[in-house]
Design a protein around this nucleic acid. Structure first.
Lengths: 213, 213, 213, 213
DNA sequence: AATGAATGAGAGTTCATTCAT
DNA sequence: GATGAATGAACTCTCATTCAT
């Protein structure tokens, strides 16, 4: 039974901010902060320009929300990762890298990475959030795992932080390649295949004699 | 500080465009294209805003000149590199990577890399120049060297283009780290040391049994 | 005078473009295209400078709209005129010229005429619209009427297009005089009287012996 | 014998201002005051932009010089005309109009007329010079001749100033037509033929019975 | 809550004018 | 006298932000 005063369909109010952030992420990732127009974000979110200001104070605020949106859900996973595996080092690395490859493939985190790189100097506090909550944590956890493996004699001597960077670099470069050169027609890299070959190669180089598979 | 007797005009046509491009490179690298103000570029170049237009038609034009300025001198070197070494693969790679590390340390190419990544979608023709003249050439030359070494039995089977990316990725990530996180206080990577360790590791993984050093 | 309680925004979308075009016509007619400032047009229209861009893409666009605004309503009348009178030639001419005098007196078409003359070389497409849709049509219709009257033996031999120009020239010159010299204090011409005397004179000269009134 | 220090060819200093004014007249006539660039005027005059300022204080000054240049030589002729002919009215008018047609055909006065019309509101003092020294004089002289002829019974009653305007209007309109519509492809008027037909027509209408030729 | 017309500060660009050479 | 590189004020245009509805 339809009461006359009742609205025929109700917008899910609770979801508005989420829809806006999603739309903003797309536009920011595509254009960068400055070249992104609020008009376009509003249009893609299916709301009016004025509505953005019901949920976000300024454009910068919205930008921060976009970055936060990406950082937040991954913090937990990085934390979990820090309480690491007791098994062999190469298993840990493979599972961890595999997980990151999955995230990179499934989400639009790649575009946000590009944004953070491009706007780090204009939004230092965002670079800080990104670094402190995500990058540094992940890199630190990986470096700690390397160090532990070195202590067990599983991995050759060497700077653990550098080893950690070596392990994930091709993935990051592959993502940047995708964001930068694939749109102009360059051949993409098959990220899972790339990382499989990379881990085969680099783990062979890292592992001590006795630990080789 | 303005001394009263100081001349208002300077009149140094020959050097002006170079000074302006240098100033613009600094500002663009720091702020990105859109957030860079012509006022600031002019001020840093020590000229008036109007003077920019004596040498460059538009802001975009100046931006292109900045990118071109970095691409141009490196094209020749990439070409030379393509006509490569007959010696052992690892020697070639070490010398080549060493050279690139030198360029990265000595020039402000890092900031330009960041710009190109950030503005690739807004200036596809710049992404194309950068890719076609520089990145693709260098990666292709390296991949060809890998392939030749594989044919000689020096390097294990595997995708040569992926190998090429693996070899230089940490350097690129190190540069991006420097541009992104060092300004907010993160510890930088020692690029030469990083790449020394990386090549030791990754070459061990790449070289076939008989070719190991 | 700004009363404190007065609203800052007015929100009258329906009427805005019309108000703006009217204000623009005044300013363009007074100053010419280049010397007309958007600030002044906006002020006279009672809107902000930015509001102009809600309705017109560029200053040139607004200029075209002003010219179009004047051309459009007169096209129909010129068309009607082409399907002319069957009566005696002098009656046709008197009624027609009388009508044009009325339009010139009642509207600000005079200022727009001045604009079109002044900017024809910079906006050839406007000169073309003005010529094709208005001037050439009107002159052609008048010339056709002359030719028909000549065929009936009512008007002496002679170039019909030239006769048409002779008939309306003093009106145009009178309008230009009003726009050019009256503002500096010159005595205006009484256009209706001028044209009455002119038609008396020139029709006497044009009509064949038997057709004289 | 050539002394070493002597210049091989000497610029005619005395002519510089004249060359500049001629070039300026072309550009102003083509573009109007505001759209005319000093760069272009200097280039057409074959001098540097700075050189303009050796002879003229400002752009407006140069504009005034251009108008003056056209007004000056014609003032004398108008004066001569004022001390008029004793012969029959129609002879006077034919010779006078014939002279003006000659001037209009031989000089670029047409473009200047257009300029004066277009810029009269921005440069009232120029409109005044043009009016007081040229237009008003010529029209007054012609009106005086009409009045004298009326006193002699040669010309019908009627407003002499209006008669004067009627006599020359088609010439002015023909010139404006040439400047406005011929550049976009409209057919020009043959001014001498137009004025011949016009005088035949209008004099027939003006002259009293007994004075008809 | 939601809209979108309106604002106005600030950007890129032009060009008459200046002045060291 | 002559140059033309350099200036800077003034312009058109953009867009994040506001607020009457």
């Amino acid at each position: 039974m339809l009461n006359p005063g009742e609205p025929k369909f109700r917008r899910r109010k609770a979801d508005r901010p989420g829809e806006i952030v999603r739309a903003a992420m797309d536009v920011f990732a595509e254009k960068g902060f400055a070249a992104a127009k609020l008009d376009e974000i509003a249009a893609r979110a299916g709301v009016s320009k004025g509505a953005l200001y019901l949920y976000f104070e300024t454009k910068e605020d919205l930008f921060r929300a976009v970055v936060g949106q990406v950082v937040a859900p991954n913090i937990a996973q990085v934390k979990a990762l820090a309480a690491a595996h007791p098994g062999p080092f190469s298993d840990l690395v493979r599972s961890l890298v595999g997980h990151v490859v999955g995230v990179v493939q499934a989400t639009s985190i790649g575009g946000v990475v590009k944004m953070v790189i491009g706007e780090a100097r204009n939004f230092p506090e965002l670079a800080r959030v990104w670094h402190d909550d995500l990058v540094s944590q992940a890199l630190g956890a990986l470096a700690a795992a390397v160090e532990a493996a070195q202590a067990r004699g599983e991995v050759k001597p060497g700077d653990p932080r550098a080893y950690a960077l070596q392990l994930i670099s091709p993935l990051l470069v592959g993502v940047i390649w995708r964001e930068t050169f694939v749109p102009i027609g360059a051949a993409p890299f098959d990220l899972p295949a790339l990382m499989r070959q990379h881990l085969d190669t680099v783990l062979t180089g890292m592992l001590a004699e006795g630990a080789l598979p």
